[in-house]
Design a protein around this nucleic acid. Sequence first.
DNA 1: AGGAAACTATATCCA
DNA 2: TCTATACTTCCAAGT
Lengths: 375, 375
Amino acid sequence: MASPPPASSDLTVPSTSTTSSGDSTAKTDSHSTTTTNAPSIPYEESVGRHVSRKELPADVQARIERNRLAALERRAKYQKRLDSERSIAQQFGEVLPLPSLASAGGESGAGYLTSAIIEKNAAEIHKAMEEVEPLPKNEWTKFYDYDLSKMKDTRAGFIQVIDDDKKRDAEDENSKKRKWEPTLAQPDPSIFLGADDNYECQDCTSIDVDFQLLRYFHVPVCIGCRDAQPEKYSLLTKTECRADYLLTDPELRDTDLFSFWERPNPKKSTWNNMMLYLRCQVEEFAFKKWGGPEGLDKEFEKREREKEARKEVKFKKELRDLRNKTRTSVWQDKRMQQRPKIHKHNFGTALVDPESGASVQTCVECGIQVECEEF
Amino acid sequence: MASPPPASSDLTVPSTSTTSSGDSTAKTDSHSTTTTNAPSIPYEESVGRHVSRKELPADVQARIERNRLAALERRAKYQKRLDSERSIAQQFGEVLPLPSLASAGGESGAGYLTSAIIEKNAAEIHKAMEEVEPLPKNEWTKFYDYDLSKMKDTRAGFIQVIDDDKKRDAEDENSKKRKWEPTLAQPDPSIFLGADDNYECQDCTSIDVDFQLLRYFHVPVCIGCRDAQPEKYSLLTKTECRADYLLTDPELRDTDLFSFWERPNPKKSTWNNMMLYLRCQVEEFAFKKWGGPEGLDKEFEKREREKEARKEVKFKKELRDLRNKTRTSVWQDKRMQQRPKIHKHNFGTALVDPESGASVQTCVECGIQVECEEF
DNA sequence: AGGAAACTATATCCA
DNA sequence: TCTATACTTCCAAGT
Ligand SMILES: [Zn+2]
Ligand SMILES: [Zn+2]
């Protein structure tokens, strides 16, 4: 918690590739955005700062403007519901409180979290985070840039920002004026609740922010930018996070590390909730954990190889075991009762061992096996 | 945390069966102490209060007195080491702090633990705990009876008792005079540290208390009673807790639920520490979780059946797979991809090798030789 | 006197 | 557009 890196919003890929929004596809494609293009460049160098908006191509600017206008319209529609919704949110706040954290903040406080997982994770994260210098705030950012890693969820669901070095970069005016008091999760979070102020996309000037991303991941981004940058703003299931970013269950469960959005399980609503994570948050942590995209890819391939090897070994052993098992089970009685006696082997048809490709004959009396293939 | 039941020390089996101290034996035997004797009696009724000491048989009283005298002697031996040990304990306290909890206590406080596991567990525990009425304190108890479920470990390793309804039953005099300030874990905890006051066994009047049980589980019990009641005071490893009481890892890790004693791994000292739990504490929770010994046994047998069924299904499928595999390979490989050298061995009559005396068959096509004698 | 992470397979349930 | 559990495997630290 000492001096974490800036929020994930500061991490941007210079050339925003407009990949299709399918975020649950092949594992090999998930974190290749930066690697395939520039595999030799270290992570810290490959990650650029936000580009100024006027540097964007004309079509992108046009789309941004469209989004902005659409957002204004949509916002007017929502406006009339805000007051009533706020009271609803408070009701739900008592029913569905977010997981809360220990109240004391900072590392100097005495009140620490205790679970072994959390402690261990926290230590790892701190170590990982301190390797990255805190970046100064972007000039174009007009709203207070909340850094999730510096927030503590209280039981009430409000956010309290822990002041540190980074705050000196944020204009006091903004940090006061744009203070965000998020409301709580509710069953149908498609409607934004309790916003007293306007929100602007952190990647453009549109105010058509995705309320779900804002609510559940505290990232103000517009619909257009969300769809335009799936490598940042697409959602992943917990299982995908594990598979694609090699994160462990304790990590993904730790609310100090990630926020997640629980939704009814699409497979069957009575099953466990689906847990959705925001890609940029997951990716940020995964890159810290594994050492950039290259490290992640390396580990991924390593495990892939290990998995392959394991499967082969297991298959071989399984086969051998089964062969023994069937042989003994079939001929055990005979062999147990009878002394080793001399007999002429009675071999039946040849079976092909799929593992080695060798054909094998087995004696029906004693079970001895002989390979047919001779060299 | 709301109004937990009395400490595990209040739960006693009326007839203390002197089972042998083997606590790591068969799973089926582990929680049969109360069930086999009185399987039809519900748990709440089968658990009696402590019997008064004078009701005990003469031999037990004699043993108690013996223990008491032995304890006095042993205590004198330890006495001279207390001061120096205390400073050592403080040193170790900085090196090996116990896992700490959130500082705020009680259910009304705002600072809660947050991990989803803990919250979930806590909710379950509260629900389970509130089903049991808090029992009044026993008359014979002369020392402050610490209730683990009301204690919060601070980072410093000191104990802070959270006051609640039960306190009105404890005499103020005792609660002040007998205040216990436990010292920290140290590598060799066989020596008790920092006891300013005397402790008396909670099951008899002996003061030969087991310092390890007192230190790590906050249960003052003498060596004699400890050994006489393994169904209450024997230790279990974490793995055993999982297997015998069907507790989950998150539960066992939760320091709100159990205290545990970490010791170097007996298998290999460089491995993860062995974690020891006190049976009565584990059992108490497990019975709450599963609904008494009967519920536990029922669940245990259910899982046993499931496990068996799973294994059978798996084996059958495995076998079928192999059969399919070999069959296809027999019919397919033989005809489809017949290699030039594959052939069925054509063994003739067995010949006896004059040198070794072994009977040998030889393929007339390839010349491979096979011994006929099988063991 | 083992424990926890990683991996694979499987069932998933509660008002 | 899934997740928790049960099960298997391997396990450390200082130079
Ligand atoms: Zn935008
Ligand atoms: Zn005793």
